[in-house]
């Protein structure tokens, strides 16, 4: 796994962005950027060469699930690995995220170990 990969963290709460950013830093990923909802994230993804997207679901403006769908519908972004980190915990929602093409799903509150495990699993699959 390339520790230098560029990661976009999308969450409307700056505290949660900071937590995810710190956890990623502890895992050795320091090349991160932040956005506070889907509509700010999408142009960043389209313009920047991001390798990985970590997004919340429930955000004003564009939600995480809509961002995921937009990413999958975009010719250049469709293969971008996406990890959803969210408080949304209904089975239907998880199934919908899976159908929309999410690569991993972490429910809040979560631990550093869970985040690490999911990220590793995603990149095992992507690279393997």
């Amino acid at each position: 796994m390339n520790k230098n990969m560029k990661i976009l963290i999308v969450d409307d709460f700056s505290t949660m962005r900071r937590i995810v950013k710190n956890l990623l830093r502890d895992l050795g990923f320091t090349n991160t950027a932040e956005a506070d909802d889907g509509s700010t994230a999408l142009p960043m993804l389209q313009q920047g060469d991001f390798d990985f997207l970590v997004t919340d679901w429930n955000m004003p403006g564009m939600t995480g699930i809509d961002l995921l769908r937009k990413v999958r519908a975009d010719e250049r972004l469709r293969h971008l690995p996406v990890l959803m980190v969210t408080a949304e915990a209904k089975r239907e929602q998880i199934v919908a995220a899976a159908q929309a093409g999410v690569n991993g799903y972490v429910v809040k509150p979560f631990t550093a170990a869970v985040l690490k495990e999911k990220i590793e699993k995603i990149f095992e699959r992507v690279e393997g």
Binding site: W57, N58, M59, T63, I65, A87, E88, A89, K90, R91, E92, Q93, I94, A96, V106, V107, K108, F110, V114
Partner: peptide, 21 residues
Amino acid sequence: DAIAAEGPQINPDCEGVVASQ
């Protein structure tokens, strides 16, 4: 819109809600 964002689930025993990772 069954999948509309609801925020944190207060009651994990609620039907159709996952209890853990």
